[in-house]
Every structure is written in structure tokens, then in C-alpha cells.
Design a protein around this nucleic acid. Structure first.
Lengths: 225, 225
DNA sequence: ACACATCAACCAACCGGTTGATTCAACCAA
DNA sequence: TTGGTTGAATCAACCGGTTGGTTGATGTGT
């Protein structure tokens, strides 16, 4: 058997990388510690030794993702620029988060769908930090007459939801294209970011445009369930 | 012990209801068949007997959700109206899907995050059906000069993502409000639908508005990883 | 010499599914 | 109408495999 390599930093890093990949693909419950250890090429006892077990490893990963995300968006908070540009920068910063940590959307999405059952109370403020960056941009936009007034929470949910959804569903989209043959056009991340930048700025624009707002019809008749 | 109740329709219905609730909350791997059977008040052997096992039960549930969703949006396809109103109706129809089946967003989101590993090839066309409804609305809008040209796939991803994200994260949002005390304002579903209706129509509007399109700045300087 | 990191093997609990027995509703011939 | 049969539905108990975590031994760097 190979000589033992003794390098705790490298062991921890390998475990976090393997955990990131597998938790993103299969979720917390769908991932075994045997699978993580095997992919990390490390003895599975190291998970208990270094992280306190499966939940500890997952918590460490989650914390890393959230603090990295909050830190990156923090740069946008401090930036003194017109609100449209800050909005664009917010979206771009989000993109950078994903470039640096491609597993973040999948892991974060699973977590919030489950009600945050693995989210330690200590890292909840990161969510608030992210929210207040966007809130500040929206307030500045309204104050400067560039954005119409909107509910910042609903705007945040919609924006973050659409961004995370895009990145988290890449594998599934590729399957749809392959098995059904949709003419998808570009599904490039940069195109998506550009698209949603335009949608957001258009959606926040102050003056009414042609056909907006639209008088609401009741829509096609539908049976109740 | 109580007399045996013999009612296969009721048994299947109870199992599907319990499965819907638990799969939405905990995901496929995080839900045990013991938990499903207990909540349905049914012997767990019934899962194998009626559905062929855990995966069969989950597949039946997924199929029910997707065909219901596709059918409801189908009504919008057939509706002859201006594109703005059809877009509004599309969003409203989506809302109705969730009203009728509150577990749909969580289950669908988990599934597409995992690359659709439990999605049978047979029900994939439902995704295409949903996509082509929106594609038709966008094409009509462009043709009639009401919408600017956009990539329908990217628009679909963004819209569906933001809608599903909202509904799927209700539990988590409530936790955030409770534990951090965000002044969230309204997080009512109807307010959200109205909000995203306005965002979508504004984002699709044809004529440039003040401040749009915005010249792109490089944003605040950020370290590369 | 010692503390830390690592290992192979082990363990109790859990899991999805199966099994043989039992119950029961529908059916049928007398 | 009645008694017997039959197949479907249901049950409690069981099973082999898997799981997260532990353990005592071993190797290694300071």
C-alpha cells in the first residue's frame, strides 16, 4: 500500500471539493460519505476527524459559499455610480460568484427549497447582507428618479431566483436539447446575464412605455380545482 | 387492531398526498417509504403493491404535476388576445397551477437541479409544451410591435425560474423574517405575481426608456479567483 | 517521546423491498 | 338466498444491503 501522505490542509481541501461537487449534483441526502471520501481519495474517517461528520462538512461548505457570495456583492454596495450601472454590476457580481464557485446555485437552491434546514443561524445574516445591497440600489434609483418604486424583497426574489435557476439547471437544459431537440438558440451564460440586465432595467424603468401598464383581463376561462 | 379498511382508490390517493408533501419538503432521497406510509396511515407494502416501489410512486407524482401544469398553460395557447394580456394570463395560469398543487414548485425545482434524474423520457415533452406557449406569445408580441425581440429560451428560464423560486422558498423566507427580522413588506403571492407581471411587460417593452439601454461600465474592481 | 493525521475494519441503525398469512368484497352455482 | 370460491388488498415481520460514525492500530513530523 502507498506510503501515507500527511497533509491536513490538502485533505480538507480535497474533501471540500469533492463534497461541493457531489452535494451540488445529488443533494445532502443523496450523497454518501463513502462517495465523498472516494472522490477525494481520502479515508472516510477524515470527514469525522476534520469536520465533525457529514453535517459539519456540509455546513463548512455552505458557510464558504455564502460568505464568498456576500463578500463579492459587498463590493457593489460601496461603488458610487448611477443606479442602473450598480444594478448591472450587481448582476455581473452574481455571475462572478458562479464563475468562481459553479456549485453555489445548486447547493443554495436546494437549501432554500428545504427551508434552510442545514443553514446555521450564524450564517443567516449573509442573506440579509445580500438583500440590503440590492435594496440600496433600488432606493437610490427611486430617489434619483431612474427607477419606479418597487418592493425590494419581491424584486430580490425574482432576480436571484431567475439567476440561480439559470445556473442550477444547466445539466437539465442540455438534456432537454439533446432528447427533444429544442432549437434553443444561445444558452450562453453571458447572453443570459445580458438578457436579464435588459429585462431588469426595462422592468424598473420609470416612464410608461407603449402598451404598459396593461389593463388586466381575466384571461382565458379555466376550470377551478 | 382496527378492522381492515379496503379501498384501493383511497389508499393510492393517501399515498400520493403524503408523498407530495414529504418529497416537496425533503426531496426524494431525504424521504423514506416508512415516513410516507405512516403519514398516509397505510402499510408500507402498499407502496410496492400499488406503485411498484418508491421510484414508481415518485414518478406517478411527477407525471401528475407536469401534465396538470402543461394542461393549464395550454388554455393560454389557444386564447386569442393581445400579447401583453396573454403574457399576463400565462403568469396567472402558472399561479393557478401552484394554487391547485402547492408542492409543484419545490418538487419540480429539485428535479431540474438534479438534471431530471427521475424524469421519465415520456414526460419530457411537457416541458416543451410549456416552452412553446411562451414562445408563441413572444413571437406574437414581436410581430405586432408590442414586444422587443428576445431569446424565448432565456426569457422562459428567467420567468419560470423567478416564479418557481418564489413559491418554493416560502418556508425559508418566513424563517428569515422570523430570525433576522427583515422588514419584508408584503410577500403575498398575488403581490408577487403583479410585481413580475409589471417587470416582464416593462422588460419586453419596445421603445427605449430614460436611462435604457445603459452604457456598460466595468463595475467596481474585484479580485479574480 | 509525543501529538497529530491517517488507515482498515467494524458496528448499530436504517433502508427499500419482500414474504407468507390474513381479510374481504365480488362472483357464482345450487 | 346461501354457502363456497377466488383474487385483490392489506398486514406484521423479516431480510440483505447500505449508511454514518467509531475504534484501535499505525505512521509521521516536530
Amino acid at each position: 500500500m502507498a506510503v501515507r501522505q500527511r497533509d491536513p490542509k490538502s485533505t480538507r481541501s480535497a474533501l471540500l471539493d469533492a463534497a461541493a461537487d457531489l452535494f451540488a449534483k445529488r443533494g445532502f441526502d443523496g450523497t454518501t460519505i463513502d462517495a465523498i471520501a472516494k472522490q477525494a481519495r481520502v479515508n472516510k474517517a477524515m470527514i469525522s476527524y476534520h469536520f465533525g461528520g457529514k453535517r459539519g462538512l456540509y455546513g463548512a461548505l455552505l458557510s464558504e459559499i455564502l460568505t464568498n457570495m456576500a463578500a463579492r456583492l459587498e463590493a457593489v454596495r460601496a461603488w458610487d455610480a448611477p443606479p442602473e450601472q450598480r444594478m448591472v454590476a450587481f448582476i455581473a457580481a452574481f455571475r462572478e460568484v458562479v464563475r468562481v464557485q459553479p456549485v453555489a446555485p445548486q447547493i443554495m437552491l436546494r437549501e432554500v427549497i428545504s427551508g434552510g434546514r442545514h443553514v446555521d443561524r450564524k450564517i443567516l445574516p449573509n442573506f440579509l447582507a445580500i438583500f440590503t445591497v440590492l435594496q440600496g440600489i433600488l432606493e437610490q434609483g427611486t430617489r434619483e428618479g431612474k427607477f419606479r418604486p418597487v418592493n425590494p424583497v419581491l424584486t430580490q426574489i425574482g432576480l436571484v431566483g431567475s439567476l440561480m435557476f439559470f445556473f442550477a439547471t444547466e445539466t437539465f437544459r442540455k438534456r432537454i436539447v439533446r432528447e427533444i431537440g429544442v432549437d434553443a438558440g444561445s444558452m450562453d451564460a453571458e447572453d443570459y446575464i445580458r438578457h436579464w440586465r435588459d429585462m431588469m432595467l426595462g422592468g424598473l424603468a420609470v416612464r410608461p412605455v407603449a402598451g404598459f401598464p396593461v389593463p388586466v383581463d381575466s384571461g382565458p376561462s379555466q376550470g377551478d380545482e
